[in-house]
């Protein structure tokens, strides 16, 4: 057994944040779960236990089905577009461009903006009005003769969430690029050289040398983007407000808790969001921990 002198100072120094973490993260997760098992439906707390009734109700809830569908559409469009665009930009920037630093900052800059600001700006850009009230990107399309591209954006029936994903891609693609670029740069030049010596084309080098080594980076990107998309709230509120066509679990949770004062059901929705994020994060954590142990 180690002597207290060795581990004591470390523990003491981390203790405050450990305690805060225990209360404000895990304590609240537990408290939220406890409320999700109650019949609390008014302003004043009601802790009468009703088991998993709230969860069962949610399974047959029509609005919740729409939320899941919307959440999935958003997540798929957002992640695929971010990863592809991010990778493409990273590869382009890897070509030893002149003003690389400038381009890098320009692509990365949107990430520094809050989703609310992005949402407000894109609400104007994606104005769905037609004919003489046309504006935003649609107006641009008609000015340059691409009338066929004019569309309803986030108000497109059934696929509106894909429209909502556009601003999110705009904001996060640069960040994904930065991740990939860092990954590409960490690959030693000698490996590429070896490929070239063996007579591989640049395309084949990217396909068979660079891409496989970017797998851990891609995984991190998926986890980071995935948890953003599963909890998206502010972006949608800023673009579309509270409309059922563009509803996601986080907005449903907010409305249930604070507009309808149904805190039991709101907590149930919050637990659902936690689980959906956990499904993405926990395998990743296990994976990285195993890797660290192996290395």
């Amino acid at each position: 057994m180690k002597r207290a002198k060795d581990w004591m100072p470390g523990l003491l120094l981390t203790a405050p944040s450990l305690v805060a973490l225990a209360i404000f993260v895990y304590g609240f997760i537990g408290w939220n779960f406890r409320i999700s098992l109650t019949n609390w439906k008014a302003l004043s707390p009601d802790y009468s236990f009703i088991g998993l009734q709230n969860y069962r109700d949610l399974l047959v809830d029509e609005r919740f089905k729409i939320d899941i569908k919307n959440s999935l559409i958003f997540t798929v469009v957002f992640m695929v577009a971010c990863l592809l665009l991010g990778l493409l930009l990273a590869i382009l920037l890897d070509q030893k461009l002149k003003f690389e630093g400038l381009f890098r900052s320009v692509y990365l800059l949107p990430m520094a903006i809050s989703f609310i600001v992005t949402g407000v700006v894109w609400r104007w850009l994606m104005n769905p009005a037609t004919d003489d009230r046309i504006s935003g990107i649609n107006l641009l399309f008609t000015k340059i003769g691409l009338d066929s591209l004019v569309n309803q954006w986030h108000l497109t029936p059934n696929w509106g969430m894909a429209g909502i994903a556009l601003p999110a891609v705009w904001q996060m693609a640069g960040y994904t690029m930065a991740l990939f670029l860092a990954g590409i740069r960490s690959i030693p030049e000698e490996i590429r050289e070896a490929g070239r010596v063996d007579g591989a084309s640049e395309w084949r080098i990217y396909r068979h040398v660079i891409l496989p080594q970017l797998r851990p980076i891609a995984l991190s990107a998926i986890v980071i983007l995935g948890h953003i998309s599963l909890k998206v709230f502010d972006l949608i509120i800023a673009i579309a407000g509270k409309q059922l066509a563009l509803d996601v679990p986080a907005i449903y949770m907010w409305q249930t808790s604070f507009d309808a004062y149904n805190f039991g059901k709101g907590a149930t929705l919050a637990t659902y969001i936690l689980f959906s994020v956990a499904i993405v994060i926990i395998p990743y954590l296990i994976f990285t921990m195993r890797q660290e142990r192996n290395s």
Partner: peptide, 17 residues
């Protein structure tokens, strides 16, 4: 009440779809 109104609002949202 707020709860009732929220339910009507949800029903309306579904109907608009």
């Amino acid at each position: 009440s707020n709860a009732w109104k929220a339910e009507i609002d949800t029903a309306l949202g579904l109907f608009l779809q």
